[in-house]
Design a protein around this nucleic acid. Sequence first.
DNA 1: TATAGTTGTAATCTTTTTGATTACAACTAT
DNA 2: ATAGTTGTAATCAAAAAGATTACAACTATA
Lengths: 141, 141
Amino acid sequence: MKITSRFTVAVHTLLAIYVLGKEYKMTSDFIASSVNINPVVIRRALSSLKAAGIIDVKAGSGGAMPVKDADDITLYDIYTAVDCVEGDLFNFHENPNPECLVGKNIHAVLDTHLADAQAALENELKSVTLSDLMERLSILI
Amino acid sequence: MKITSRFTVAVHTLLAIYVLGKEYKMTSDFIASSVNINPVVIRRALSSLKAAGIIDVKAGSGGAMPVKDADDITLYDIYTAVDCVEGDLFNFHENPNPECLVGKNIHAVLDTHLADAQAALENELKSVTLSDLMERLSILI
DNA sequence: TATAGTTGTAATCTTTTTGATTACAACTAT
DNA sequence: ATAGTTGTAATCAAAAAGATTACAACTATA
């Protein structure tokens, strides 16, 4: 089980737009060749990021550009924008036996703990901004 | 994207064994009817939990029974026993373009942050023991 | 205003993963 | 000996993820 690559592809896409956007026109083809993926996949990512108000995409003439400040974009924002996890992260087998003590109460016993774990993951994603990543990238160059 | 129900099924299975094990013989059929699932799925869960040293399963005559103390079993132990996530939780698209500044460094920039998020999730699972769940269950009855 | 380059998105296809089920050999208490 | 059980391989079905094709709609600009 892994969280879909849509997420890291979207992060890659944003980094490209924010770092290389002044120098190049950021078309889906350009970004696709950096990620090494089909341009349609990038267009879908751009759609999601645009819907989330993070970037703007020029229809027709082409090119994506920043809208939100990189300081105000967290990994969590990207994670929700591309809809990695819909609702609960942990899965249950449906219809446990209500005649059984354990089956009847399994959700009541587990739900909050699993929600806490999911929240811990998401809080960690909230603590990292796109500018953190940009800074780290600039050091690596 | 959701973490496989194998995990919550295994938790359910252990709760049943630890709570009802004194009163009933905990066969795969018995547990399966509590979870409302095929008994083979439960046998596979029992195999994993046995391999992790958490329970013992009587071949032939049948029945599962506790080995480890419920205080010493965390949700994380169960999560690893049933192998929910193999290695990294987050997925990348393979072979980013090494000719591109961003493609070349995407792993260096992201890996530690994603590992931190995964660790946060897993630490939260480490903080909950089976006896916590048993206690909560006893309150609900 | 024609055109070249681009986006947006539906549709399809393939692959992978997950989950469900059948089948049966091996085991063990009685 | 037998009845009830586990352990596991094999198979099947369903769902999810990912890749690709196709094309209408849009826009800068020549």
